[in-house]
Design a protein around this nucleic acid. Structure first.
Lengths: 334, 334
DNA sequence: ATGAAAGCGCTAACAT
DNA sequence: ATGTTAGCGCTTTCAT
């Protein structure tokens, strides 16, 4: 198979032999350098450098029972909202000396279970999920492995997992209320696939709770492209709405640009409201009015919670983060 | 420290004992189930389930010498271009049974070295970098660990690492040439920080190679915000350019929207050319003319190369991917 | 301050 | 088909 002569990596024993000390001493200069005499320490260090010795993480893990990394499962990296979340999460975990392995589920429950298991296989000490609804098998896996796991993007005290997120229902109600208060009554709701996404489901529930009878609903893939398509449908309506409430910023942007392409003026012809508050939302033309979801803070909170769980054995409490309406240029009174 | 009674996780020996077989048999049902008699296998499986036994990845790794994951270092997750790359990479690595740990460097050489080391510490079997210029210490680390490492987003046969990417210089020349051919002569170049980014450096070199004397250069942070700022500067120029060449799509979008906000019509008042071809580029209004960089393919190629390197011991050859001009609505003849 | 030696949980020869 | 056993590279008592 391998004609290349395998150059064996130096190990503790090699170093010990070369430095003429015991493996214990080498281990000590690695972990508790102060407990080793300066002379010895220097001698060993020199050999370590010379032999290019790098301790094996696996061997270390086997002894300590720790791998010092957690897994994060997100639907996709294509939506900036998750990228932002992960950046904050990774950053905070780092404070605990924890790394973070990212896996994308592509909104597929099957892929989620599979990737969660593979994360476990490679030794993840904890799991961070998006949303609260997951395949029973995932819950089962997590339970069996007694794995610290938390759910994000969703706040729900009654969830089987600690949740760190926001009230999606409330956020959607807040958005619709804004539009209603501006005098809009005929409103198109553009949302992602509701089938396997609890966040979308909750947002829709929030909207329905307002009992507005003049809403039209448009399901689209969560992407600019999806927003474009929905906007076309809406523009084709005989009885056009005066406002669009898009349950993700990318949908809103797709719709915004598509309507402009079709010759409409925003917000004159249509008010458009998004949800997420992506960094780009404030830079579109017109700037997008949107519901700000504090993903950055959520990433930090999740990182802290997981870090405290793993390092200090404190089981996280559910945390609800406040959402906020950001009024910018894409909405106007009717 | 821990008042919780630590519930010891079941190990191979526990399972063997409970199933009244040897550890070897248990190991076999885990790895080569077919080499175990059905009866025995079922019995062992039952115990495994009952005891909630999960094999320790660390112990496995220590024996096989394999952790089955690689590390990927990208500047940021905030730019969709890297997210797309990673998605493709992760996907392809999966075909080799390899996982992928992502770390972001925030364009900092120091952070890159630090994260690379921590990736090594946790056992990464290979490293995938962005660009070819890195801290000497990073090269040294990689060399010492004899770590399969490849550089992406940049094609350079003479690089110390195998590169899989495109010719940034050529891409930039292609863009500028397009603008020139449209009759534009006064062109503003908006680019990211050149100091520590070899891709940007190469693109600028490509532009300079065309010896066009009527160019103005505007450095901005690679974000929509950065593009906005640069566009404002350009709008303030007494001697305004007729076209903007933005060396990243996000810069182009920021500039596009900002100019629209200022009342300009695109492409009538300014032609705008981007680079990357983000999914969103075709959905802006007007759609963005841009240089298509095949990041998806690059992710796949990188995944294949790394997989083959690790699994089949084939050292990758540098690979150059073709870039392509995508003419859409944001550029027009002068 | 240092060393000897016993594991950690698993895989892989080798034996039966 | 199954068992025995020797490690893998390291940490950690327990001696000295």
């Amino acid at each position: 198979m391998q004609d290349k002569k395998k150059i064996k990596r130096a190990n503790l024993r090699d170093v010990a032999r070369a430095a003429d000390v015991s493996v214990a001493t080498v281990s000590r200069v690695l972990n508790t350098p102060n407990s080793v005499a300066p002379n010895t320490r220097d001698k060993v260090q020199a050999v370590i450098t010379e032999l290019r010795f790098t301790p094996s993480a696996a061997a270390r893990a086997i002894n300590s029972g720790r791998t010092r990394f957690v897994g994060a499962l997100v639907p996709t990296l294509d939506n900036a909202i998750f990228a932002r979340f992960l950046a904050a999460l990774e950053n905070r975990l780092d404070d605990f000396g924890l790394s973070c392995v990212v896996a994308t589920t592509q909104e597929s429950a099957e892929a989620e279970v599979r990737k969660a298991k593979s994360l476990l296989d490679i030794g993840a000490e904890g799991l961070i999920l998006s949303g609260v609804s997951h395949a029973p098998e995932l819950f089962e896996t997590v339970r069996q492995a007694q794995l610290p796991t938390l759910a994000t993007s969703y706040f729900d005290v009654s969830a089987p997992l600690p949740t760190i997120g926001y009230d999606n229902e409330h956020a959607a109600r807040m958005g619709l209320t804004h539009l209603l208060e501006l005098g809009h009554t005929k409103i198109a709701i553009i949302h992602g696939p509701a089938a396997h996404n609890d966040r979308t489901g909750a947002r829709l529930a929030g909207i329905h709770s307002l009992n507005c009878q003049t809403l039209s609903f448009h399901e689209a893939e969560i992407s600019m492209q999806g927003g474009c398509g929905a906007a076309q449908d809406i523009a084709d309506l005989v009885d056009k709405p005066s406002a669009l409430f898009c349950l993700s910023d990318v949908l809103a942007m797709g719709a915004l640009f598509e309507l402009q392409r079709l010759g409409y003026k925003i917000p004159k012809d249509f008010s458009i409201l998004g949800m997420d508050d992506l960094p780009s939302a404030r830079h579109t033309f017109p700037a997008l009015t949107t519901i700000h979801l504090p993903v950055r803070r959520m990433g930090e909170k999740a990182g802290t919670a997981m870090g405290d769980w793993l390092e200090n054995n404190v089981v996280p409490q559910p945390e609800m983060l406040e959402v906020k309406l950001e009024i910018r240029g894409s909405t106007l009174p009717l």
